[in-house]
């Protein structure tokens, strides 16, 4: 066999790294979060039985989407943080990088593996949630129809419409897509942090801070831009927060979607573009650090 021609980028190489990363992560029993999610859904439905259907749907949606939000975020951080340190500890990273593999390809494979994992978990949790919502909606519709047999037709119609409106609405889907985007952003940022972090724990701790600061970034940015006449120390601090951290609050559309606010396509597109920008930026930075890193 002659020497293989070497290309700067190979989809097959990245594909192999991606599927290997995904496989490794699924081996970690990350899908237990799905079980947790299912238990939460079942548990809350007992509790919700004492409420009216509007209350029930509202709380069911809030709890489910809140859980999808936190579980994907936690998964993104915890799963990504261990990828590099683990491979270094196992020394398998040496076997891979001693092959004709670019470090950029290696990083891309790792990130793609995590994103695939996040996409799968988000889809499964959403499917579970929508199934529960669908079943409950149809139970309530049937009950309402039975109770309102005697009412004028437009009252019944309106009541049924109310039930439908308070259960599933199509805006939930872009809302869920944005939850995924936020998790993808956190994964890319964690990958970046893990390229210079000395340990898995360090990366996770840093990311927890980033998570909270990222949610406050909007407030810091507004104060900074308004020039409140705060001292220069405070102003510099606010400026740094505004410049260095992503505004994670922008990715929390789902709270208001549950409450019934529609997501305009333009707003969705802008948010998605912003998310894409961050994922790319953090990936490139991760690559830049990792490119020169000594292993």
């Amino acid at each position: 066999m002659s020497e293989l021609p070497h290309t700067a980028f190979s989809l097959r190489r990245v594909g192999a790294l991606t599927s290997n990363t995904l496989r490794e992560l699924t081996r970690l029993r990350v899908f237990y979060v799905l079980l947790l999610f299912a238990l939460l859904l079942i548990g809350s439905s007992f509790f919700l039985a004492r409420m009216t259907f509007q209350q029930e749907f509202q709380v069911l949606k809030d709890i489910s989407l809140g859980a999808i939000n936190i579980l994907t975020s936690v998964l993104a951080i915890v799963a990504t943080a261990r990828l590099l340190p683990q491979e270094i500890e196992d020394r398998t990273i040496y076997t891979i990088l001693a092959k004709p593999v670019h470090r950029g390809e290696y990083m891309l494979g790792k990130l793609a593996g995590v994103l695939l994992l996040l996409a799968i978990t988000t889809l499964l949790m959403s499917a579970l949630f929508l199934a529960v919502l669908y079943v409950r909606e149809h139970t309530v519709l049937a009950e309402t129809a039975r109770q309102m047999r005697a009412a004028p037709p437009d009252h019944l119609e309106e009541a049924l419409r109310n039930v439908r409106a308070s259960a599933f609405n199509l805006n939930l889907l872009p809302g869920i897509a944005i939850i995924f985007l936020k998790a993808a952003l956190l994964a890319a940022l964690t990958l970046f942090v893990s390229t210079f972090a000395t340990s898995n724990i360090f990366a996770v701790v840093v990311m927890v801070f980033v998570y909270f600061i990222g949610h406050l970034e909007g407030t810091a940015r507004e104060y900074w831009q308004q020039e409140h006449g705060t001292g220069w120390i405070a102003s510099t601090f606010l400026g740094l927060v505004a410049l260095l951290f992503p505004d994670l609050q922008l990715f929390n559309l789902v709270d208001d979607v549950v409450a019934g606010t529609p997501i305009l396509p333009a707003l969705f597109a802008k948010t998605a573009a912003l998310g894409g920008f961050y994922v790319t930026l953090y990936f490139l930075l991760a690559w830049a650090v990792f490119y020169r890193r000594e292993l």
Binding site: E3, L4, H6, R91, Y94, T95, A98, P100, V101
Partner: peptide, 18 residues
């Protein structure tokens, strides 16, 4: 250069394969 690694194989000390 990555191209230098087309003709080399490496076994590190006690690797921990999956």
């Amino acid at each position: 250069f990555v191209a230098s690694r087309t003709s080399v194989g490496f076994l590190p000390e006690s690797p921990y394969f999956p």
